[in-house]
C-alpha cells in the first residue's frame, strides 16, 4: 500500500470534480462549491488507489488524443467485428463453439496499460481475461477463448490482441 502524495491528490481531485460537473451539469455557485468539497474529500481518501506511478500522465494532451482515438476508433471496430461474430454464433444454435483457456505473453510494463489491455480483451465478446501471472520477468495473461484456433503462445496472442497492444503502448509508454 502506497502513502498518499500531494500531486496524486491534486490529479484525483481534478478527475472527480470533472465527474461531478458532468453528473450535475448546473453551474450555480452553490453546486460548484459543494462539488469542490466533496471531490477534495474523495481525492484525499482514494488518491493512493487511483494513482500508482506518475501523477499527471492523464493530463498530457497528446496522450489523451491518442487514448480518445483508441477507444472511439480502433477499439470500436474490433468490438463490432467480435460482436457480429458472436451474434452469428448465437443465432446459429450455439453449436459452433470450441472453448479453451490459452496462455498469452504480453509485453506491456505499466500497470495502467496492463489493466486497460485486460479490460479491452474482456470487453470483446469471445475472450475473457481470467488471470495475470508473471514468470521470469515476462507477463502472461490466461484468456478464455470461445473459439480456439491456435495453441498457446505468440500466435494466439496476435489473433486475440490484434493491434490493441500497439496502441496502448503509445498511450502509456
Amino acid at each position: 500500500m502506497q502513502k498518499t502524495r500531494f500531486p496524486a491528490v491534486v490529479s484525483t481531485f481534478i478527475v472527480s470534480y470533472a465527474f461531478w460537473i458532468l453528473l450535475t451539469w448546473s453551474f450555480s455557485a452553490q453546486e460548484l462549491a459543494a462539488g469542490a468539497v466533496v471531490s477534495f474529500l474523495v481525492a484525499l481518501f482514494s488518491a493512493r488507489f487511483f494513482i500508482h506511478e506518475r501523477s499527471f500522465w492523464l493530463f498530457n494532451p497528446l496522450r489523451l488524443l491518442i487514448a480518445l482515438f483508441y477507444w472511439l476508433g480502433v477499439f470500436m471496430v474490433e468490438l463490432f467485428k467480435a460482436n457480429w461474430d458472436m451474434a452469428k454464433r448465437c443465432f446459429g444454435g450455439c453449436k459452433k463453439v470450441n472453448p479453451g483457456i490459452v496462455k498469452v505473453p504480453v509485453d506491456l510494463k505499466s500497470d495502467y496499460a496492463q489493466a486497460a489491455l485486460a479490460n479491452s480483451i474482456t470487453l470483446t465478446p469471445g475472450t475473457i481475461t481470467m488471470d495475470i501471472a508473471e514468470e521470469d520477468g515476462q507477463t502472461y495473461y490466461y484468456i478464455h477463448w470461445i473459439d480456439v484456433q491456435k495453441p498457446s503462445g505468440k500466435e494466439a496472442g496476435d489473433a486475440i490482441k490484434g493491434t490493441l497492444e500497439k496502441w496502448l503502448r503509445r498511450v502509456w509508454e
Binding site: 458472436m86 448465437c90 450455439c94 470487453l123 470483446t124 465478446p125 475472450t127 478464455h144
Partner: peptide
Amino acid sequence: SRMQASTCITT
C-alpha cells in the same frame, strides 16, 4: 461460454 455471450449485451 454463457459469460462470453452475455458480453454481447453489455457492449
